[in-house]
C-alpha cells in the first residue's frame, strides 16, 4: 500500500518543531507499524536526510518503549497493542496517517517522536517497591497464603509496562492509571502492607510534583492502555490515599 505520513519533526528539546509530510510506497499489510517507520527511515537515509527518531526496544509489546500517537490515539487505532504490535493491515491504501509524540508537560520531547518518560521512573523510585529482609531469614513468598482473587488482581495491575499511553490519551495528561496500577500491585499483597502508607503518599506527591494533570474519569486511559489496566486501580489508589492520610 502507498501512504502519506504527517510526522512531527523536532531536532532537539529546544526546537519549535513542525509536522512534515512524507510519502511511503509498497508497504506490506503484514508489516508492523515500526517496520513501516524503518522503511521510511531507510528511504530518508538513502536521500541523505535525517531519519525520524522514535523509541523502540523489544518490538514484542513488553518493554513499553514505543510511544507514538497515531491518528489521534496512543499506539494507534487497534486495541490492547503497543505501536510495535500494530499492523499495517489496520490502514488502507492511500491513507494519510498522522504521527505525533506522546504530549504532556511531564513528557518533554527529546527529538522527533522520542519523549523523556523519566518522570515515571521518579514516581516508581518514590515508593514503587517493597523492602525484603535479606538477613538470612527471608520468608519464602510462596509460603505466604494469598487469595486467588487478590493474586489475579495484583498480577493484572503488575502487567503495566509504563509506556505512558494513559498520560498521552488523557485529556488532562494525568498519570493516575499508571500510579494506580503501581500502587495496586503492592496494596493487594501482604508483602506490600509494611510500606503501604508511605508508598501511596510519596508516589502521589511525586506524581503531582512532576506536573501531570488530574484524573476526571473520562476512561480514555483504560481504553488505550495496551495492557488493559482497569480504572479500578485508580479507585483503589484513591482509597489507599484516603486511608493513608487518615492513619498518618
Amino acid at each position: 500500500m502507498n501512504l502519506t505520513l504527517k510526522i512531527w519533526r523536532q531536532s532537539n528539546a529546544q526546537d519549535k518543531g513542525k509536522m512534515v509530510d512524507y510519502k511511503v510506497t509498497e508497504i506490506s499489510e503484514h508489516m508492523s507499524f515500526l517496520e513501516m517507520m524503518d522503511v521510511l527511515n531507510e528511504q530518508l537515509i538513502n536521500k541523505g536526510e535525517e531519519p525520524v527518531a522514535f523509541d523502540h526496544d523489544c518490538r514484542e509489546g513488553i518493554c513499553g518503549m514505543c510511544s507514538m500517537f497515531i491518528n489521534g490515539e496512543a499506539h494507534g487505532p487497534d486495541r490492547g497493542v503497543t505501536t510495535c504490535q500494530l499492523h499495517m493491515r489496520m490502514f488502507k491504501d492511500g491513507d494519510t496517517i498522522t504521527i505525533e509524540p506522546f504530549r504532556a508537560k511531564a513528557f518533554p520531547v527529546i527529538k522527533d517522536l522520542v519523549v523523556d518518560r523519566s518522570s515515571f521512573d521518579r514516581i516508581q523510585h518514590a515508593g514503587g517497591y517493597i523492602s525484603v529482609n535479606t538477613s538470612g531469614n527471608t520468608q519464602d513468598a510462596n509460603g505466604i497464603p494469598i487469595s486467588k482473587h487478590a493474586a489475579d488482581e495484583a498480577m493484572d495491575a503488575a502487567t503495566c509496562i509504563g509506556c505512558g499511553a494513559c498520560v498521552a490519551s488523557c485529556k488532562n495528561a494525568s498519570a493516575m492509571l499508571f500510579v494506580g496500577a503501581k500502587v495496586s500491585q503492592y496494596a493487594l499483597l501482604p508483602q506490600g502492607q509494611v510500606e503501604a502508607v508511605d508508598r501511596v503518599q510519596n508516589m502521589v506527591a511525586q506524581m503531582d510534583l512532576e506536573g501531570f494533570g488530574n484524573c476526571t474519569n473520562t476512561g480514555a486511559c483504560e481504553v488505550e492502555c495496551p495492557k488493559g489496566i482497569s480504572l479500578e486501580n485508580i479507585a483503589r489508589m484513591n482509597r489507599e490515599f484516603l486511608s493513608a492520610n487518615v492513619k498518618s
Binding site: 489521534g72 498522522t98 495528561a173 488505550e224
Partner: peptide, 18 residues
Amino acid sequence: NRSARVKTYAKNNGAANS
C-alpha cells in the same frame, strides 16, 4: 489540567476512547 499539556495534538481522536 490544561497546563499539564502545553503543546496540544495536531490530531486527537477523543471520541474513540471517551
